[in-house]
Design a protein around this nucleic acid. Structure first.
Lengths: 213, 213
DNA sequence: GTGCGATGTATCGGTCCGATACATCGAGGC
DNA sequence: GCCTCGATGTATCGGACCGATACATCGCAC
């Protein structure tokens, strides 16, 4: 998964590790906390060894030589290679079971802008299937084994069931949109904050964003 | 986490590996797919080495000897030791950062029936804090970096933000209940199955599933 | 002039997963 | 009577990822 995410991000711009982690966190913030360096750096090394990315030490400010003072190691900028782009295309197009679990789906979805429509549809439907099965499992437990479980465990299952039902509905919307060629936006009744406003009302002073919709 | 879950389950009854996995899946189905044997068996070995569980080969049917025919290995039943119970109590009572991530919180919550109220409150509030921070991160990205991101990534963030807000509300309810000594049940508008019943109505006869919607 | 937080690269031990292998047992078909 | 097939059951191995930790530089506030 990390491999796919890194390749995808480097396709937009060359980056060094630290930056990569920040972008990764921004892009995948909805599905995982933050990528650990203990995963990131080894993976970068692996990708480099495979020839999918290359190291491009960033030139200091002016093109002037700066002759090895204190042997400044500095940041290591990685960029994707042609083989790397191929690899990305191959990874993004294939959909196995690991594409449907929480993390795998999230990463794939985050790069849907670089995925063709048929694959998008396939992944959305696979994910829906997976969540529907999880939902049935929870319903089973809540129905069959309810008296064996304590109130807290039960409440946990109910909350999980709720989340499943919600996600299935979300996926249905996305699938419908996908089929009709509309933009991937799901209507949301009363989003955070405003009672009837569609987007987050920016505090006056720094008003950056227009309204996207 | 697995260690805590195993110790918790074995506190209810001795079990063998396969059974343990099924119970684990039932109890934690809301937060993780299924425990892999590649985690389960090594962990069991580790717990046994630490003296927290012991192996108790189950006696075949009658107490009669069954003299080593085909060297039937059979199932290995594990039971918790006194030290194991201590270990469980210690693990369940302490709350660090790893107690607040998705998996850690889920496991702790699943054993809230064996946790004292002060700890429950501490964990619920820590979890709320964690989710609030995640929520703020998502709001930031949606507000500040919206124009840098494509429509799919944006939709993913919105869905994540939604889930965060929902979970915070759920936690608020649970915290309020906890403080007032009520049962850990959160009111749910149109739950699956019953329109007004509070608990699972055991279906008469064999008619398993009513109509879900 | 100095401490401190952000930036930046890197490794190590440990947890957990997915694939795989293999053996037993009861039910059902033929 | 035989045979296959799915559920039950134990186990290992390589790999992905995390959390803790270490260390170095830079700019800025005090």
């Amino acid at each position: 998964m990390l491999e796919l995410a890194i390749l995808g991000l480097l396709q937009e711009a060359p980056m060094h590790g630290y930056e990569l982690r920040k972008e990764l966190t921004a892009k995948l913030g909805a599905i995982r906390a933050a990528i650990s360096y203990g995963s990131l750096y080894p993976t970068l090394r692996r990708l480099q060894a495979a020839g999918w990315i290359t190291e491009a030490a960033d030139a200091p400010a002016t093109a002037e030589e700066v002759p090895a003072l204190t042997s400044r190691r500095g940041r290591v900028v990685y960029k994707i290679t042609a083989e790397g782009k191929e690899r990305f295309a191959q990874l993004i197009a294939q959909a196995g079971p690991e594409t449907y679990d929480d993390t795998g789906f999230g990463v794939h979805f985050a790069f849907f802008a670089r995925t063709d429509q048929a694959t998008r549809l396939r992944i959305l439907e696979g994910r829906r299937r997976t969540i529907e099965e999880r939902r049935e499992g929870l319903r089973d437990v809540l129905g069959r084994a309810a008296e064996r479980l304590d109130a807290y465990t039960l409440e946990l299952q109910r909350h999980g069931l709720d989340a499943c039902e919600r996600e299935v509905r979300w996926l249905e919307e996305l699938i419908a949109n996908e089929r009709s060629g509309r933009a991937p936006t799901v209507p949301r009744p009363g989003t955070a904050g405003g009672p009837r406003d569609n987007n987050s009302p920016p505090p006056p002073g720094e008003s950056r964003n227009e309204r996207p919709s």
